[in-house]
Amino acid sequence: MSRTDEPQDQGTSSGNDEKSVLYGGTSDELMQGHSYDGIQEYDNPMPGWWVWLLWASVAFAIFYFVGITYFDWINTYEDDLAESLEELEMMRQAHAEAEGESFEVTEVNIEENYVGFEEHIAAGRETYQRFCASCHGDQGEGLIGPNLTDQHFMHGGSNVDIFQVLTDGVAGQGMPGWENSTTPEERAQLVAFIRSIEGTDPPDAKDPEGEFVERS
């Protein structure tokens, strides 16, 4: 007596082609040759390019880890940052030197091309607020540093004298030099601004210091 509920062979079917891909009868089988509770399993391997890409990524990860941890094959973030900062500093110095070579630090140049020119005074005011106001006051009235609105000077009162003080600073009195922070033109603009506030007599101005230098 035969059992009518016995499952049919997956390789044959009364209503299906025996060579159908659904039953694994072709050369490029899509189905595995077994089933689980009637559920058949696809044979769907990963594409070759994806597998090669995976292994290449694994190999690169190993190379990168060894190279950055134990050898000097690969720069660390700190190394790259240090090199970038060094390159930036070299570019800044080269620019400053090139501009400094073309700038003529003479009394005539500063007087005739900067002092009294509104655009240079305005630019000098901005530079003054960044570097000088904390010691000399917002209006040049003097705080830690001397009053800049009178005509008394401690280190010479000519345009070149003021320019050189801005460039080199006064180490014994706590004033830094701004040569590495400003361009020669910015320091000439500072001279123009300082000249523009002479005689303004702002409130709470410090008493004069140094020698009186009369301006012609």
Rank of each mutant, 00 (worst) to 15 (best):
D72K: 12
D168S: 12
L85Q: 13
M1V: 01
P203N: 15
M46V: 06
T127E: 09
A59I: 10
H152E: 14
A133D: 14
P202F: 03
V108W: 11
E6Y: 11
R125F: 04
M175L: 08
V191M: 07
E179D: 06
G124A: 08
E119L: 12
P146A: 02
A192F: 08
V160W: 12
T69G: 00
I68A: 06
Y23E: 00
V165M: 14
P146Q: 10
R3S: 03
R130C: 00
D161L: 03
G156T: 11
G172W: 01
G15N: 03
R130A: 05
F63H: 00
Q151H: 05
E87F: 14
F163G: 04
A96G: 01
G38Y: 01
I74V: 07
D138P: 08
Q189I: 03
F117G: 10
V115Y: 12
G145E: 02
T182D: 01
P202V: 11
T167I: 12
V115R: 04
A56I: 12
S134V: 08
M46T: 05
F153W: 02
V165P: 14
T183K: 08
L148H: 05
A59K: 02
V115F: 07
D150G: 12
N147A: 04
V160K: 04
N44M: 04
H34P: 00
Q173P: 00
E97K: 01
Q93R: 15
A123C: 10
E89Y: 05
C135D: 01
